[in-house]
Design a protein around this nucleic acid. Sequence first.
DNA 1: TTGCTCCTCACGTCACGTGAGGTGGC
DNA 2: TTGCTCCTCACGTCACGTGAGGTGGC
Lengths: 106, 106
Amino acid sequence: MTLREVCNTLGVTRRAVQGYEKAGLVVASGKNERGYLLYDGKTQARIKTIKLYQRLGFKIIQIKDLIDAPKEVVKQALEEQVDWLKCERESIEDLIALANEIIRSI
Amino acid sequence: MTLREVCNTLGVTRRAVQGYEKAGLVVASGKNERGYLLYDGKTQARIKTIKLYQRLGFKIIQIKDLIDAPKEVVKQALEEQVDWLKCERESIEDLIALANEIIRSI
DNA sequence: TTGCTCCTCACGTCACGTGAGGTGGC
DNA sequence: TTGCTCCTCACGTCACGTGAGGTGGC
């Protein structure tokens, strides 16, 4: 698939994929006769995984360490991320309460 | 109070206050005989307010429109922010569930 | 002169957004 | 030549972080 096709089917931007390449997370599998960048199935799967990790709050540099890591390492990282997400949820709860207090005082 | 004193008492960094000044959110009330930047009580209160709005997720440009706005405008902005925070909370709930699913599948 | 504290730039960060300028085949 | 799609830079974004280089009084 060309870059455009990958972007459309996976819902990522051209610039994001470019960013992943710069970070060393993915590599184009080649170019077609017109010089268009091509990505194979494995690379597309990697891009999907990267997007998923990003949604979970991992940074690019963390994903770099995670994407080719053994399952147990991934599992532990995910468990830590769940703890972090729970903290985030707590913070948001507190902020909602705080904002509501201020609203009532106005 | 000097910049250092403001930073220590309010828990902000020198660079953050500098950023607020650049954005036009606050202005130093003057300089002392040594050329140190000074901030009066009103300015310190503004900095506190800015930090609070930032915690609630407002961006600097939004705070610029909010900090001198009438109470009703602030109230409405806060109500919208609460809605947004609730959406954020939902997203995090979903992410926690998703991460836990992945963990179970490993 | 050394040491301390402050000042004002100004580049770096992060993950892209948003063009700019150039190429290749119809 | 025009029009289209792609390419590869490269500056811009956001709210500061992190120095660099210079000043003033002990």
